[in-house]
């Protein structure tokens, strides 16, 4: 490989849009989310630097590792979560039509697969901390994973079928040119938003770490730097999830490049964040068995209906 492309890859991974940009934008989106919720609840909400301050504060705090836990796994899991999220971002088209790495057929499946890894690390984190709250929390993580993963995948299949491609950039190009078809994906988009809410473990699906029930859930025993990285991974997942939805359902970059493309990307992720915040504000937390019922009995059939609709449209094109 060329030195140039190696250097470029390193810059992509570490500075932009990789670790540093993703950290900054993730923290910013966390603030947007919190501020929107606060305003909708008629509160003041945090100042813009609050997530950053929280992050830095946690970095400075002592990290306590329980005696009973599996130390090696316990320590390494947050980094796995972050690495998986950054890799997923590299495969999604951001401010231009092509993704930065590997614009191959089927990269959509890889993104979904990579986004599952943080959830699995959450499960392992809870399981390895050997505390009753985290054990219950990690069991809930897994149960919830089986509930939302299917509707999420199904809702992404619909656009893929219509575009006739498993490549994210091809899907986005297909929809950017056909706004009417984009509008026809409304049900799928709704399902995807709800499933994404479940993936991000936010209200009404924040069951794994429902604080009124099981304190911190899977992260109960985490503290200091390790907890900071886990929180960061969740924030980054929000960015990546929003980017994925904007690539699949909202037509990606609409053929724009550079600064204009970046502005469009930011606008779309902000819009998705707004929808996610709205969902968070509007509902009460469900019970785990209600969540599974909801995903399998309502979301999955809705996604199927969308796929059927897409097949019908496809046959007419």
């Amino acid at each position: 490989m060329h030195t140039d492309s190696l250097l470029a890859s390193a810059v992509y991974l570490i500075v932009f849009p990789g670790f540093i940009f993703l950290t900054a934008y993730g923290l910013f989106l966390q603030w947007v989310d919190r501020k929107l919720c606060a305003v909708m609840q008629n509160r003041v909400g945090p100042p813009w630097y609050q997530p950053t301050a929280d992050f830095i504060k946690l970095l400075a705090k002592e990290t306590i590792i329980p005696d009973a836990c599996d130390t090696a796994i316990f320590k390494v899991l947050p980094y796995f979560a972050i690495a998986a999220v950054i890799s997923a971002l590299m495969l999604i088209p951001l401010w231009k039509t092509e993704s930065l790495f590997a614009p191959f057929q089927g990269n959509m499946v890889v993104v979904v697969y990579l986004l599952t890894i943080p959830t699995v690390t959450f499960f392992l984190a809870g399981w390895s901390s050997a505390s009753p709250y985290s054990t219950v929390g990690s069991m809930r993580v897994l149960t919830q994973l089986f509930a939302y993963e299917v509707p999420l995948m199904l809702s992404l299949i619909g656009p893929a079928i219509l575009a006739g491609s498993w490549n994210l950039s091809e899907i986005s190009v297909f929809f950017a040119g056909r706004p009417a078809l984009m509008a026809a994906q409304l049900i799928g988009f709704l399902v995807a938003i709800l499933a994404l809410q479940g993936k991000l473990e936010r209200m009404p699906f924040d069951i794994p770490h429902a604080k009124n029930e099981i304190v911190g859930g899977q992260f109960t025993e985490y503290s200091g730097r390790l907890l900071a990285y886990f929180n960061l991974a969740v924030d980054m997942e929000l960015v990546v999830g929003a980017a994925l939805l904007s690539a699949v359902f909202l037509g990606g970059a609409w053929g724009l490049y550079g600064a204009a493309g970046l502005a469009l990307f930011l606008a779309k992720t902000l819009a998705v964040t707004f929808l996610l915040a709205l969902l968070k504000v509007l509902m009460a937390r469900l019970r785990i068995e209600q969540m599974v019922n909801f995903c399998w009995k309502i979301l999955a059939p809705m996604a199927m209906a969308q796929i059927l609709l897409d097949i019908v449209i496809k046959s007419r094109l």
Binding site: M40, Q41, N42, M203, P204, N212, V281, L282, M283, A284
Partner: peptide, 16 residues
């Protein structure tokens, strides 16, 4: 009660 079921908006409004 709204807070215990994770419905923070209702909690904020009633307390306001």
């Amino acid at each position: 009660a709204a807070y215990e079921i994770g419905f923070e908006t209702l909690f904020m409004y009633t307390w306001r």
